[in-house]
Amino acid sequence: MERPMREADGFVYASLPQLMALEFKARGLSFLARQRLSSILAGNHASRLRGRGLNFEELRRYQPGDDLRHLDWRASLRMGKPFVRAFTEERDRPALILVDQRMAMFFGSTRSFKSVSAAEIGALAAWMVFQAGDRVGGLVFNDSRIDSIAPLRSRTRIQALCARMVEHNQQLSAGNPDTEAEDQLDQALQRALALASHDHLICIVSDFAGAGPRTLQLLRQLARHNDVIAMQVYDPLALQLPDSGRLMITQGELQVELAVERKQVRQPLGDFLSGRLKDVATLLRRSQVPLMMFSTGEDCVQQMRRELGRLSGASR
């Protein structure tokens, strides 16, 4: 029996029109800058000279008929013989957008829930890849299921990916039983590893709850032959608790109301939330993949623009 559609207000529950409309807001945003050195993606695989539409393949001995413009004078002088840089035509690159819709994401204190922010960021990333001329696919996962969409350069494919995000998002509820699988994030990364052997762009949109040593290992494996970006979604409460009032904490069918103005409640809760955020950020940085951080309290498009600028500046 299908569940009835919940009212999609764009903050607690996402809607398909909301995600599809991000196509227009994605214009002007790109994961790749004009020059390689100012790109936030610095993978170890083949260098992409995107301005020329060519990939550098190898340095080899000059052969009659080779384009003299490709002579590598430094290598030629060193070897005492003419060498040229060989290029092949650049192909489009498939992208996988991983979007977390576990129960841990069904929380928000300002503007929107983490689950909705993740859906928005995932859709925005998909549109950015599509507008760059590349194929888009993805994985959407909750606590019990992982759905995959094969990469294809098509608006219909992005619509299918967004529809899957909305479907998973609609299944979240405070009344859901406590059946969270702690290793589901790792399972999703393992699935991505099986799908993306090399030269993929992989964007992982999650709060990274439950991340551990296995997560670190999988991220490093993915980044070995792919460009990987970690997009961590967090709630502002993790940085600063309110000075007064009451905070409702929900975990499945269990609800607890906490008086945050009381020091014996406020301090340990604040320490726990901020400590967890820092621990995850530290783990992600150890994986050596670019880390982008998104607050549920701000517009995702503005944050994407700011984070792209920050990481591009750091890579120069």
Rank of each mutant, 00 (worst) to 15 (best):
P4Q: 10
A8Y: 04
D9L: 14
V12L: 13
Y13D: 08
Y13A: 09
L16S: 10
G28M: 12
R34I: 07
Q35K: 14
Q35Y: 14
R36Q: 15
L37C: 06
S39E: 04
G43V: 05
L49Q: 14
G51V: 05
G53E: 09
R69T: 04
R69I: 05
S76C: 09
S76W: 06
L77Q: 10
M79C: 07
K81Y: 02
E90G: 13
E90C: 09
A95Y: 05
L96W: 00
L98E: 00
V99Q: 03
D100F: 04
M103N: 05
T110N: 01
S117F: 07
A118R: 03
L124F: 00
M128S: 06
G133T: 08
S148V: 02
I149Y: 02
L172Q: 04
G175I: 08
D178N: 10
T179V: 12
D183Q: 07
Q184T: 09
L185R: 00
L185V: 02
L185F: 01
R191Q: 10
A194D: 11
S197N: 07
H198T: 03
L201F: 15
A211S: 13
A211F: 11
T215K: 02
L219H: 00
L219R: 02
R224A: 06
N226A: 08
M231G: 05
Q232W: 07
A238T: 10
Q240R: 15
L247K: 08
I249P: 00
L258P: 09
R266Y: 05
P268K: 11
P268L: 11
L273P: 04
L273E: 05
L273D: 05
G275R: 11
D279A: 14
V280N: 01
T282M: 15
T282L: 14
L283R: 03
R285Q: 11
S295F: 07
T296Q: 07
G297Q: 09
Q303G: 07
Q303H: 07
G309W: 07
G309I: 08
